[in-house]
Amino acid sequence: MSVFKALGLAIGQLTDGPVLKVLFKSVALTVGVFIGFGALLYWGLVQAFAAYDISGGGVAGAAVAVLIAGVSFWFLFRLVALAVLQFFADEVVAAVEAKHYPEAARTAQKLPFRRDLANSVRGMGRTIGLNLLALPIAAALVVTGIGSALVFLAVNAWLLGRELTDMAWLRHCASEPAENPVSWHRRALLGAAVAAIMLVPFANLLAPMIGAAAGTHLTQSALAQRNEKARSPDGPRDA
């Protein structure tokens, strides 16, 4: 199944009840995180301005808080949105499998909260770590005008593709996961497509949900191909 077909199926399921329910929860929690961050930032700035006897501290604090929160929303949205979605990923994947892959839905293992939390923390760690590693390369390429953006796009496309397909794959593997069955280039293409959607205002709120659903389609397609190959005469045989 092509990545674009998977994205089309994912978008088509956005109006389904179970998906809408998760969409509202994840968007509300994501936006709530940034509102809470902005309120805390505003309070801290007002206190700092008052301590240094800066006049108009409330207005100045509000202006600076809005500016910092807005910039943070732009740069950190992907990280926060995916971390939030991790807690509801099982519901998204289950809704897609129930509609399109009923056999897979029957054999899937529901992930416990502890494992969801661990996956979310690992994902955030990978994202922060790889972006920090890419920073010197991006800085060296800043003179090219576009090189830095391409470096970060490549890194985050790979990261997004892995996270979005892992959400489905982890329901069908053992506690010690084998290699993700979706090929690296399909994961990267999915990640790049979702990263592009995240650059569009308002559409970026839907991007994690679309990506998780599309990642489920790609994972099930890859598993079906693997099983078909195993059953073929030229596939692996028992000794």
Rank of each mutant, 00 (worst) to 15 (best):
T127K: 00
L7F: 10
L164R: 01
H185L: 15
N156V: 00
A174G: 15
Q109L: 06
A134V: 02
E91I: 07
L7Y: 08
M167R: 01
A28K: 05
A214M: 04
S72T: 14
F37T: 09
A105K: 07
S55Y: 05
R162P: 00
L135H: 02
N180M: 05
T15A: 15
A230L: 08
G61H: 09
T144L: 12
E228N: 06
L111Y: 01
F73L: 15
G235K: 03
A10S: 14
E163N: 11
G36T: 11
N131F: 07
E176I: 07
A203F: 04
P136W: 05
M198V: 04
A6P: 03
A10P: 00
L190Q: 07
A81W: 05
R126A: 10
G36F: 11
A60M: 13
G70S: 15
A193D: 10
Q220R: 15
M198L: 14
V19N: 09
G58L: 11
C173K: 02
A60C: 04
F75R: 12
W43Q: 13
Y42F: 14
S183A: 13
F75K: 14
V93M: 06
A140K: 04
P112R: 09
A105C: 07
G36V: 11
S120T: 02
F34H: 08
W158Y: 13
M209N: 08
N227A: 15
Y42E: 14
A214S: 08
K21V: 12
Y101W: 11
V143Q: 07
G125H: 01
V96L: 11
L82E: 09
